[in-house]
Amino acid sequence: MANKRTVESLVKAGAFDSLGDTRRSLVEIHEGAVEAAVSEKRAEANGQVGFDFDSLWDEPEQVQQVPPRPEWSKRDKLAFERDMLGLYVSDHPLAGLELQLAKHASTTITHITSSDDSIDGETVTVAGLITSVQHRVARNSGNPYGIITVEDFSGEISAMFLGKTYQEFGPSLVGDSIIVLKGRVSVRDDGMNLHANSMFQPDLGVAASNGPLVLSMPEFRATTDVVTELGAVLGRHSGATEVRLRLLKGDNARTFEIPLPVDITADLYGELKSLLGPSCLL
């Protein structure tokens, strides 16, 4: 028979969702249920179970009722799934934030981790969820530093905060926080990680804007080849959102309307950043 800890882990992982009760409710009563089952098995083993005709007319023993508790928050529910199984099952904590995060990121984590050694030393920006945090002290220097794991929709990677970067951002390294992290890729024999340069928590309170998509780039980069390729990118993502292009020259800017409305997606953001640069989205 499964012990209390095993039953609790199964509940948190969603193994009993088909019963129709919330995981929070089942965790609340699982200890009593396991104890009752253990007592019954122990009684059977000791020969304390018999048959009595009079018992046919007795009322059945009262079964422990599951309390009608509301479910845990999405954040807690998914955190338990990750802790128990090492992955998310019922949902993803970043679901619904694809566009907001893609607007900030220059690449995906899987693109980084699947690249060859030539990416070593490149500066990248990723956006995702902090799934683990370690605060440490260097043995030789005695200086504190931090190591986090960041996860996006494609994968995960570790990032190190050293020296002044740790002093500035160390207090903000909190598990289950959604962040945008800029750092330098470091390729070593034991794997690949990021050396953090900066970090911030994006404003996720507003979904994708209903206004036009505004692109920005220096005027000198608006060559015939770039503008032609931009038209091809927009054409591949045809939709209903208007597109405007701001050409920057010193402190001045000129804005043009591009007659190629688009469907705003994370893939579109990725293609635009590859063509126009990581800061082309306003």
Rank of each mutant, 00 (worst) to 15 (best):
G191W: 03
D83K: 14
D54P: 09
I147Y: 07
L213D: 03
L234P: 08
A95G: 14
V38W: 12
T123R: 04
G183Y: 01
M192K: 05
A138F: 02
S18K: 12
E229S: 02
E122G: 03
D225W: 05
C280P: 04
L268K: 10
E40L: 01
D17K: 09
S238Q: 07
I178K: 15
D267Q: 10
A45P: 14
D176F: 00
D116Q: 05
G50Y: 06
G235S: 09
H104F: 14
G96Y: 08
I157P: 10
I147L: 07
T110Q: 10
S216F: 11
I148V: 13
S209K: 01
S158Q: 12
E31C: 14
A79M: 14
T125M: 02
D117Y: 07
E44H: 10
L204Q: 06
I178Y: 06
E59I: 01
L230M: 09
G86I: 11
I264L: 05
A222N: 12
F16K: 07
V38G: 14
A36G: 08
Q134L: 05
F220T: 09
D263T: 12
S279I: 11
F200L: 00
L94H: 14
V150S: 08
L10Q: 07
G231R: 01
I130K: 08
M160F: 15
A138R: 00
I29H: 06
R188L: 02
S141D: 01
F16V: 00
E35L: 05
A105R: 09
T241M: 15
S106H: 13
P144R: 00
L275D: 07
L26M: 00
E28M: 15
P259H: 03
L215T: 07
A79H: 13
L260K: 12
G250S: 08
H135I: 05
L275Q: 02
M192C: 09
V243L: 10
E81Y: 08
C280D: 02
L260G: 12
R82L: 10
D152F: 06
V11Q: 02
A208P: 11
Q65C: 01
R244T: 04
L99D: 15
G50V: 07
L87C: 10
E229V: 11
K273L: 15
S158L: 11
V27R: 01
T125L: 08
L85F: 12
A33T: 06
A127E: 05
K41V: 14
G183V: 13
A79T: 13
Q134G: 13
E40F: 12
S238Y: 11
T149N: 07
G47F: 05
S172R: 12
K182G: 10
